[in-house]
Design a protein around this nucleic acid. Structure first.
Length: 552
RNA sequence: GGGCCGUUAGCUCAGUGGAUCAGAGCAUCCGCCUUCUAAGCGGAAAGUCGCGGGUCCGAUUCCCGCACGGCCCGCCA
């Protein structure tokens, strides 16, 4: 559509000798009011100043140059200078067949063909089971991945297991404390130890498997031995729960792998070679003029290797991103991160270019943290505070489909407060059922049609004559455009809004239009129409990772 | 002190990189099931799109300032 306007503008400009315009000024919109056509552009008003012509004159010239062949039927100038166009009805009806023919490929494109994209999400600290806080990144990353893959990209879903940090040490020692307690030892639990029953459960498993084998070790030694076992337990648990959430990761990538392989050290050498590192107080600091500019006071820079020799989160993350983008053949890395990492994000935006990695090769979807109602008070979830809502409990109580839909109805930027009791209570009111019901209703219509021996075969689509029928087709046609929007960084949550809109349009149509009736011609055509709607709904739900039932 | 995000109907939140954009669901009220599933449909009521400036033919949308809420500024991640 933009191309049609753009070509018409180019021809009009040539004809009238206009100078100084550019194609970027073209914006196509779908008017809310059907009387204003199917598509419209306000480009004439935008160009009025540059071209020094009245908007209506420009609009008229563009209108005259529009190629009025299907899919376009007519164009007119309205308001202060809008160009409105209408779609050719015969062409529109024909799209019903096209959508059904595409079937499971409807909406698929090749725009990202050949591009290797990694989407890294969830990646919770491997020190405990997944909570609803980590989980918000799940549907966001999973659905974005699906959409990118549908647009032709080679997408890898990655779960990054940060098994090398200080928190992991603490986790191992927390398990050790429980291990000792299982043998009746009076071991005090320090403030910063991990709470939660799973810690004891892991300790019990170790006891069961190895007995008192490790009893003679010091707490620190026990922690070192237990940490990898505990990590394995947590990773296996995360794999189980994410699968329950409808997410399958292509890789579970451990931080320890590139610490042990020496890649981290090599990356630090490279930073040093580029003059970005400074040794101070026994630690190694990242320090460049850009880093100083970010920190207002800042001559300090940021520690990448602690004085005890351990790398910091920033240090390992620099190496991890470099590894992905320079060694693993990934063209674009997209991280889905919680809002508390925004400062880290700014640091990374300075550190990666310092290694010569182009800024446009990675981006971050930052989502606001999930808070939840605990004893009537909104609380921030945190494993270290011991306050959290387990993802698995929510999935059990609310269901996979409803949870995914719920989390995807809001944009990543919007704050999300979760009331567990309310969610359970309202799960029957969840909008996801509204959408699924539309799909099931269509399936039911087909069952009725089959009973009466009516099939959509050989339908004459010209029987689709009402505005509501045409509106349904137009709405189905928006699906590919929506996917293009999402690929263009618009956010996966738009899919839920679209699903609701399409389901709503169908429910309204259903009320006013009998599909299976004595009029076989109309019945066949309408069966064909609702089939196209069903295909589009199924495609939308499929990308959302929500099931599309045939009956409810 | 600095930074990131938010502020839209009673509640929970969509939306628009400017016009033909004031939206959905829930909650409230009124109607609709001998006919393809009422997990549905139609209607009513409900908002100066946080406040103040600015740019413009036009601002809920863009810019600046302010207020309020959340988050962040560690040799934690």
């Amino acid at each position: 559509m933009a191309a049609a306007f753009s070509d018409a503008l180019a021809r009009a400009a040539r004809q009238h000798g206009w100078q100084g315009w550019d194609r970027e000024a073209i914006e196509v919109e779908v008017p809310a009011n059907a009387e204003h056509g199917d598509y419209a552009t306000s480009v004439a008003m935008r160009l009025a100043k540059t071209l020094r012509r009245p908007p209506r004159e420009i609009a008229g010239a563009i209108k005259d140059q529009l190629d009025l062949r299907p899919p376009l039927a007519s164009a007119d100038v309205a308001g202060n200078g809008f160009v409105n166009v209408r779609l050719d009805v015969a062409w529109l009806r024909g799209q019903v067949d096209a959508i059904i023919a595409d079937g499971a490929d409807y909406g698929r494109s090749e725009t990202l063909r050949g591009k290797h994209i990694q989407v890294e999400f969830v990646s919770a600290n491997p020190t405990g089971p997944l909570t609803l806080a980590n989980a918000r990144g799940g549907p966001l990353g999973d659905v974005l991945s699906s959409v990118l893959r549908f647009a032709g990209a080679d997408v890898q879903r990655e779960y990054y297991v940060e098994d090398g940090g200080t928190q992991v040490k603490r986790f191992g020692e927390s398990v050790a404390i429980r291990y000792r307690q299982l043998f009746g030892e009076e071991t005090p639990v320090p403030q910063d130890a991990y709470p939660g029953e799973y810690v004891t459960e892991i300790a019990a498993q170790i006891k069961e498997k190895h007995g008192d084998l490790y009893r003679t070790l010091t707490l620190e030694e026990q922690g070192r031995v237990f940490a990898p076992m505990a990590i394995d337990w947590v990773v296996a648990d995360a794999q189980r729960v994410t699968r329950k959430f409808g997410i399958t990761f292509d890789s579970w990538f451990k931080q320890s792998s590139f610490l042990e392989s020496g890649y981290f050290a090599k990356t630090m050498e490279e930073l040093r070679r580029r003059g970005c590192l400074v040794d101070r107080d026994g630690a190694v600091w990242f320090e460049t003029s850009e880093a100083r500019a970010l920190d207002r006071e800042g001559e300090e820079g940021w520690v990448v290797i602690r004085s005890n020799g351990d790398p910091t989160y920033l240090g390992t993350d620099i190496a991890y991103h470099r590894l992905c983008l320079e060694e693993r053949g990934i063209d674009l890395k997209i991280n889905v991160w919680g809002a508390n990492t925004h400062y880290h994000l700014l640091q990374m935006k300075i550190a990666l270019p310092a290694l010569g990695i182009a800024e446009d090769r990675w981006s971050v979807v930052l989502y606001q943290y999930v808070r939840f109602l605990h004893e009537g008070v909104l609380q921030r979830m945190g494993r270290r505070t011991g306050l959290f809502l387990m993802l698995e409990d929510v999935l059990e109580a609310v269901g996979k489909d409803a949870t995914r839909f719920l989390l995807l109805q809001r944009g990543a930027d919007s704050q999300l407060d979760f009331d567990f009791e309310l969610a359970v209570q309202q799960s029957n009111d969840n909008p996801v059922y509204y959408v699924q019901y539309a799909h099931a209703r269509i399936a039911s219509i087909f069952r009725t049609a089959a009973e009466r021996g009516i099939t959509p075969d050989g339908a004459d689509l010209s029987a689709l004559a009402t505005p509501a029928e045409h509106a349904l087709i137009k709405l189905c046609l928006r699906f590919p455009e929506l996917l293009a929007d999402i690929v263009g960084h618009r956010g996966a949550h738009l899919l839920t809004g679209y699903a609701l809109e399409l389901a709503g349009a169908f429910h309204g149509f259903y009320r006013d239009h009998r599909v299976v009736s004595d009029d076989v011609t109309v019945s066949k055509a309408r069966l064909r129409l609702v089939q196209a709607v069903q295909v589009t709904l199924r495609q939308t739900l499929g990308l959302l990772g929500v099931s599309a039932p045939d009956s409810m």
